[in-house]
Design a protein around this nucleic acid. Structure first.
Length: 923
RNA sequence: GGGCGAAUAGCUCAGUUGGUUAGAGCGCCUGCCUUACACGCAGGAAGUCGGGGGUUCGAGUCCCUCUUCGCCCACCA
């Protein structure tokens, strides 16, 4: 039996198919302990990618992280569900289709609503879901039989139910106020969707002439500062602070709005900050959220001067008189220049100064958003935020890295109502019908089913034209994908879910809102752990993005090196929550780590199959301890160390301490920060399989395997066991190569998969005296190799080395030393020689290598002396601490005991070093 | 205006509650095509842990401060 030279990554899809055919990824609600089954559930819902998206590195990073956790949980014997699906992505998808239509010289309005929606459906049908296929290619072990879609009939039902319940509880209302409006997308946006960007702008100081000429002693004009002079056409007042003595006398009088020559009042309002500029602020209620509030307080008119396209016009229902001909129809940006020029001409422009300020942009198309007065549906958020805050504080949920908890808390504490109306066509139509014939309060009807006539007067009804914010369906995702609002088996078996993996950029959009929805609709947090990872950056540290074209294409990486190589590189290179930098210009170098590692695993398997064969092996547990060699005990011990460290890296699957306030569990403070360190898992497993199993164990048993007989059987059994254990630890990260190799092991039984094989358990007692002895042997061998390399002892010639240790402890291992160094190293005699000796000492066994003529004694002495000094220093510290009353009385007893033990250990070490220095340096 | 993060070997990054001589991968140097692997093996060089101050027996780790870069939040007229 032999394998090809390299793992063929082109075989990954076939492996994937076999998992799917064997239903390895399918979750069974009946097996969940919550429905009377015998396995604890473990659930992750995927952050649904946009249905038309194609896989980029950010997705890869996010989904590989989830897959590692999912595969780990599955091996831990959990009833594991990874819920896959896509998001209809209202605004994003609509934009894509609009762009296509634009290529035909048309707008969506030319096409018409019904035809446009049909067209978008067809587009999604045709191009959608590509990303799900790509997720398979990177090994994502999701339960595809449950694939969900936010716009499916089932999930749409959940959306309506959620809307109706919130409305019935008074948490959804229609609001008339200034919202963020994207003139390009032609829709309103939530606060979160209108992102700030720093820009260079200007602050224009405009002089408003006082019309109250009665008070002759005052200056006859006021100066207001604005970054948006074009909005002055919509000014209805200027405001000063009521406490500002400079203007107290002017309150109640009027100023003349330049250009329009309209008289507008001077009002007093706390909103005006005396310390800012001149302390006078112009009030444009229709085009500024703050001004709108002021306008409401003072019952001011709210003339609209900028239309839905962002041009200088009023809405159809408003008078045009405020927009003069010279700017009418011009864009706001163009109007700014024209207004500026006109103000200058009439001497009303006092001055212009440059100013850096933040301007809101549409998060989907980057257009500058326009504050706009309109009617929208809002969700009242404060009542929803409360339980989400309490839940985090009670430990029902944790966020890793923990620093994001402050961000989450800060946002929820200052939460504002959520505008959920979008003036789009692609999305869930708002389930509200209006009846013209009824009098209020019967004019608005929220319904779970489509209405064709008014439930009160049976007259004709008209459905709200708007659709819901995409995130209004997303925030229900952990519920809706499991069948909510019905009390389904999946809901019972898998809700609440366990971990949510995402990027910190959507904490507000999605993560926190899902928690709010979870508490509101079910009384429970939808998950107990939020794991936030970093973002992918290019070689220059720039965020990878489509627009910059600086991204690494994961599918290209898969094609070149295989999914495992990519997964390994990502997982091992990513600290908890840290960004990862990958150079898109040198994929070979960037992914060398993963590619090399996969090949190494493959080659260990080749060795095993060629040298140890495929004949059945004994279970290690059935081998009498006396038959084990030192190195066997050593590698078994090292395996247990690796398992324990991997377990520590991943932490607990879920919290176990009951939380009295709900039926959920809570994280205890000490476990709250533990686990989820996937890079530690990778590093620990790599060290074991490469630096211990391959570098030492494999080399050590070559002779034994070749010799055959009973001892060869022992070595075979231990080798298979140790490698099997390593493959289990590694499988969550590199599922393909480990599965391929694992199925070739002599211990494999037909029809079983590593994907569903049990996670190994560490035996805490496997460290033996003989295992420790092998540690010493490693040290000795390393020392000899060092000498050989440093002094260029030719491979063919001998080093006269002497083993000391009384009972010939090293005799059998000496042969191994010879093999390991691949030279003719000989153990010559059993007595130490001369003062010129380099000693490796430990545990009462020592080996002395005479170095006459080889070692630079001075150099070695300097090294030893330095080491001694540092040991002395450490001892001094320990002694100081232990003689400190405060420490010994206040520190926990086990800590003190630990320090005492350390002191003893270090004292011994100091003595050994002193002896060495004495011997070697003669003083 | 407020807050957060980053700065550790040539490069990309680990470094959990302070504690042995600060680690890994890639790159580099030396020697090896040794029958699993040159995508490899053995050995090696390379770090004032951003600067300064402080706490401590002991600081990459804790405190203060400064510098540079990045991110988030805010009614930045």
């Amino acid at each position: 039996m032999s394998l090809p030279d390299r793992f063929d990554s082109a075989s990954e899809p076939q492996l994937y198919e076999r998992w799917v055919e064997a239903d390895c990824f399918k979750a069974d609600a009946a097996r969940s302990t919550r429905t009377g089954g015998d396995r604890d559930p473990f659930t992750i819902v995927i952050p649904p990618p946009n249905v038309t998206a194609i896989l980029h590195l950010g997705h890869a990073l996010d989904n590989v992280t989830q897959d590692v956790l999912i595969r780990w949980a599955r091996m831990r014997g959990q009833e594991t569900l990874w819920m896959p699906g896509t998001d209809h992505a209202g605004i994003a998808t609509q934009n894509v289709v609009e762009k296509i239509i634009a290529g035909e010289g048309k707008t969506r309005f030319d096409v018409g609503r019904d035809a446009f929606v049909k067209r978008t459906e067809a587009f999604v049908e045709e191009t959608g879901g590509t990303i799900l296929k790509q997720l398979r290619a990177i090994g994502a072990s999701a339960d595809w039989s449950r694939t969900a879609y936010t716009f499916s009939p089932e999930l749409s039902r959940a959306v309506r139910e959620a809307f109706a319940r919130l409305y019935e509880k008074g948490l959804i209302y229609r609001g008339h106020r200034v919202i963020h409006w994207c003139p390009r997308c032609h829709t309103s946006l939530s606060d979160e969707e209108a992102e700030f960007q720093e820009e260079d702008g200007a602050l224009y100081h405009i002089r408003y002439r006082l019309s109250a000429l009665g008070s002759q002693t005052r200056a006859e004009s006021l100066v207001v500062a604005t970054t948006r002079p074009e909005t002055m056409l919509g000014d209805v007042a200027v405001a000063v602070n009521p406490k500002d003595p400079r203007y107290a006398a002017l309150v109640g009088t009027t100023v003349v709005l330049p250009i329009l020559d309209l008289e507008i009042p001077i009002i007093a309002d706390d909103y005006a900050d005396p310390a800012f500029g001149t302390g006078v602020v112009k009030i444009t209620p229709a085009h500024d959220a703050n001004d709108f509030e002021v306008g409401k307080r003072h019952a001011l008119p709210m003339p609209v001067v900028i239309d839905a396209d962002g041009n200088m016009n009023a809405g159809a229902t408003t008078e045009y008189t405020r927009v003069p001909d010279f700017v009418r129809g011009k864009s706001a940006v163009a109007a700014r220049d024209l207004i500026k020029r006109r103000l200058k001409e009439i001497g009303a422009l006092e001055k212009t100064e440059s100013k850096r300020h933040s301007v809101r942009h549409c998060y989907r198309c980057d257009t500058v958003v326009e504050p706009r007065l309109s009617d929208q549906w809002f969700v009242k958020m404060a009542p929803l935020a409360k339980p989400a805050l309490d839940g985090l504080r009670a430990g029902a949920m944790r966020i890793l890295p923990q620093r994001w908890e402050a961000v989450y808390i800060n946002w929820l504490e200052g939460i504002r109502d959520w505008n959920i109306s979008r003036q789009l066509w692609w999305g869930h139509r708002i389930p509200v019908w209006y009846c013209k014939d009824c009098d209020p309060p019967y004019d608005v009807h929220v319904s779970r089913t489509d209405l064709t006539k008014c439930p009160h007067c049976a007259g004709p009804v008209r459905q709200d034209e708007d659709v819901l914010d995409t995130w209004f369906s997303s925030w229900l995702w952990p519920l809706s994908t499991l069948g909510w609002p019905d009390d389904t088996r999946d809901m019972k078996a898998f809700y609440p879910t366990d971990v949510l993996v995402s990027g910190p950029d959507i904490i507000f959009f999605w993560v926190a809102r899902m928690v709010m929805a979870g508490y509101f609709f079910t009384g429970r947090s939808p998950y107990h752990t939020v794991l936030l990872h970093g973002i992918a950056r290019d070689g220059q540290g720039r965020k990878m993005s489509k627009s910059l074209g600086n991204g690494v294409d994961p599918m290209e990486v898969v094609r070149l090196f295989g999914a495992d190589a990519m997964r390994w590189t990502l997982v091992s290179g990513m600290g908890l929550g840290a960004d990862i930098t990958l150079d898109p210009d040198d994929l070979k170098k960037t992914f060398a780590t993963g590619r090399n590692f996969v090949t190494k695993l493959w080659n260990i398997a080749r060795f095993l199959l060629e040298k140890a064969g495929t004949a059945p092996v004994k279970r290690v547990a059935d081998i009498p301890a006396a038959k084990l060699q030192r190195v066997d005990e050593w590698i078994l011990w090292r395996l247990d160390v690796a398992i324990a460290e991997c377990d520590a890296a991943l932490g607990p699957l879920h919290p176990v301490t009951p939380l009295s306030t709900t039926d959920q569990k809570q994280w205890k403070p000490d476990e709250r920060l533990s686990g989820m360190r996937l890079n530690d898992l990778a590093e620990t497993a790599r060290r074991f399989v490469w630096n211990e199993l391959a570098d030492w164990y494999l080399e050590a048993i070559k002779g034994r395997l070749a010799a055959g007989g009973e001892d060869a059987e022992v070595a075979r059994a231990v080798l298979v066991h140790a490698f099997d254990g390593a493959l289990r630890l590694l499988h969550p990260i590199v599922p393909f190569v480990t599965e391929a190799v694992w199925q070739q092991l002599p211990s494999h039984s037909a029809g079983t998969f590593l994907a569903t094989a049990p996670w190994p358990a560490a035996n805490p007692t496997s460290r033996t005296k003989r295992a420790d002895e092998f540690e010493l042997i490693r040290e000795v061998v390393s020392a000899l190799r060092q000498i050989r390399a440093e002094y260029a002892v030719p491979p063919g010639s001998n080093i006269d080395a002497i083993a000391v240790g009384g009972d010939g402890v090293f005799r059998e291992e000496a042969g191994m030393v010879e093999r390991l160094s691949r030279s003719s190293l000989k153990v010559a005699s059993a007595a130490p020689t001369g003062a010129a000796a380099h000693a490796v000492l430990a545990g009462g066994v020592s080996l002395v290598v005479p170095l006459a003529g080889l070692v630079d004694i001075d150099k070695e002495c300097a090294r030893l002396t330095g080491e001694l000094a540092s040991v002395e220093k450490q001892l001094q510290g320990l002694e100081g601490r232990l003689s400190n009353e405060k420490f010994t009385s206040k520190a926990p007893p086990d800590v003190v005991a630990g320090e005492r033990a350390k002191l003893a250990e270090w004292t011994t070490r100091r003595q050994q070093l002193r002896d060495k220095v004495q011997t070697l340096c003669g003083g």
